[in-house]
Design a protein around this nucleic acid. Structure first.
Lengths: 348, 348
DNA sequence: TTGAAAGCGCTAACAA
DNA sequence: TTGTTAGCGCTTTCAA
């Protein structure tokens, strides 16, 4: 499969026609062709058009790589994920990509799958390609060793991810405040005996959401039974099991409001509660976390949930990186607000 | 935020130290430095080490953009999705990225969100950056207008997507054969009255899976009641509704095996069947499609499902593109096999 | 074994 | 208004 010879071009470059070819065929000098194609300098309209015309005819397309040698910027950024492209990184990527595309910046996507060696390899490659900036993201918002070593002055931003040493700008969802939203809402619909069913202890998200839960309760002058705060894994099955624990013992009054660590747990809780002959939301109101539509909307009833607005996170990150590339110095940690999306599981 | 001055370098290039800096500091010529750094030519071991040493000290990193001007290849490919990064494209991306990373090829990821204008813009940018090849993918495996116009000779491959004009290599899952697997399995576990509950007619996947369903039944000397083949949307809710239709009328004997167009429908079917007091799999065996774990494993019982092996698709695509970049001429349409993953919904 | 010089495709300063 | 020339950072002849 060899390149088709381009008609009327004697010697096309490695990658198709060059600006030299355009100049020669238009009967002008290299410099003139350049000015004409970039709309710069003072040129006769006639010449300008002639050059453009020829360029169009032979399908000339400027070599961005060569241009980059002159520019200070390559109009290219890297996105590196310390983990597989997952459900959480997805909306972030999408927003990031859109912001960069709007600015004419191309995005290298790299997946390091928690492998430091692979990550180094990717970073090396990206630096070789002279990216203008780097976005680091992850499946979990947990702290991670900083990416590097990186040349001083390279704009870097962590999204839904945080460097252990606080060395760079980090954008996170305010999960603690998100949990508080859930509690406020449960209180508002009349719940008083709150439970919290969540995922594995080792996740920072678990700790933050729980902290938000307790803090908000305290603000309302409430307190959860210790036996009503249970950790397990992130599955529906765990949600079902938790209901057996919460409603089974009879030692203390069962909860009338359950805040769940994610939507899968919430769905399990809802199903199990219903199967006990209780009504959601009448007897027990339930709030989830993540606002994952396939879960929240398929459940019966659909689940009220906290949305981390990950797309906003991605958008903000993209804009911030562009600003940094433009010369602004931004750093520190920023938490963006979550929002509550109300559905029938708390409609009472 | 300015670059840190690199110690002992008088005039570092726009993007950090250049090979010239290395040469000067090592007290050798440009050509020598190049040979030393690339491990080529005949050089004294001493010189070689000296150069490497200096390069390391000043943090020299070859500019891949400049190198690309000499090479025929940029070691870069583009992946363009005609739709948002979704559940189906994800495993494909991941596998693609891994294959390319192994080959030292960086991946530009572009999202065109079904917007032809945006797509053109992306393609333009990618061609400007002199990608060595292009992967086109989509959320739906449906036929689509070919990407373009592209320079003749640029390797292109469509994954989980197919150009209307059959102009380029296209890799798809053999969904028809996948559906047949489901039927074979249902027959094997003793089902005789088969139903098919699937998604919207306009999806090619719906048509293919249905064709496979009927063809396989015929092979077994069976035939489905027309009223047992129903289309709706892709949701759990539709699965539940469908059960009311299939089991409600009493005009014909209800099915003892249901093949569903996706796992969400299957989950809805399973729940509704159970709520009718029937047992899955004893009274009704159910098979889903997609093998989406959050669905298949959360259902009670877990769902036997057809896996399109999208990661394989991505891997194959990556390898094929690399082969094409290497000069091989590959084209046509290739369908990769699906596999059946057995779980309790058919365990009898 | 090393150095000098040309050139990849392009831009930009300076002459003409 | 246009042409010439010198780079951007690198590789690759060809001389020395």
């Amino acid at each position: 499969m060899t390149d088709q010879p381009i008609p009327s071009i004697s010697r096309a470059g490695r990658h198709g026609p060059t600006i030299r070819d355009v100049a020669r065929l238009a009967g002008v000098s290299l410099g003139t062709a350049s000015k004409a194609l970039n709309g710069e300098g003072r040129l006769r309209q006639e010449t300008r058009e002639k050059v453009m015309q020829v360029a169009r005819e032979i399908g000339y397309r400027p070599n961005d790589l060569a241009q980059s040698l002159h520019r200070t910027r390559s109009r290219t950024v890297g996105v590196i994920s310390s983990d597989a492209f997952g459900r959480f990184t997805l909306p972030i990527f999408q927003a990031l990509e859109e912001v960069f595309a709007d600015e004419g910046v191309a995005v290298f996507m790299c997946n390091a799958t928690d492998d430091p060696e692979r990550e180094r390899q990717h970073v090396d490659q990206l630096l070789g390609k002279r990216i203008d900036g780097l976005v680091v993201t992850a499946r979990r918002a947990d702290r991670r060793p900083p990416v590097g070593p990186l040349p001083a002055g390279l704009p870097v931003i962590y999204v839904y991810s945080e460097p252990e040493d606080g060395s760079a700008l980090s954008l996170l969802a305010d999960e603690e405040a998100g949990a508080a939203l859930a509690v406020d809402h449960l209180v508002a619909v009349g719940c008083r005996r709150m439970a919290h069913v969540t995922g594995p202890e080792r996740f920072e998200a678990v700790q933050q959401r729980r902290n938000g839960f307790h803090a908000a309760l305290a603000r309302h002058g409430l307190k959860a039974e210790p036996s009503h705060c249970v950790t397990g894994n992130w599955s529906e099955e765990w949600g079902r099991q938790a209901v057996a624990q919460l409603f089974g013992s009879g030692a203390v009054a069962p909860p009338d409001g359950v805040f769940c660590g994610n939507d899968q747990i919430a769905r399990g809780v809802i199903e199990a509660v219903r199967e006990r002959g209780l009504s959601v939301p009448q007897d027990v109101a339930v709030v989830g976390f993540d606002n994952w539509q396939v879960m929240t909307e398929a459940a019966r009833p659909p689940i009220t949930s906290i949305d981390m607005n990950l797309a906003d996170l991605g958008r903000e990150a993209g804009r911030a990186l562009i600003a940094m590339i433009g010369g602004e110095a931004i750093s520190g940690l920023k938490r963006l607000p979550c929002t509550l999306v109300q559905r029938q599981s708390t409609a009472r």
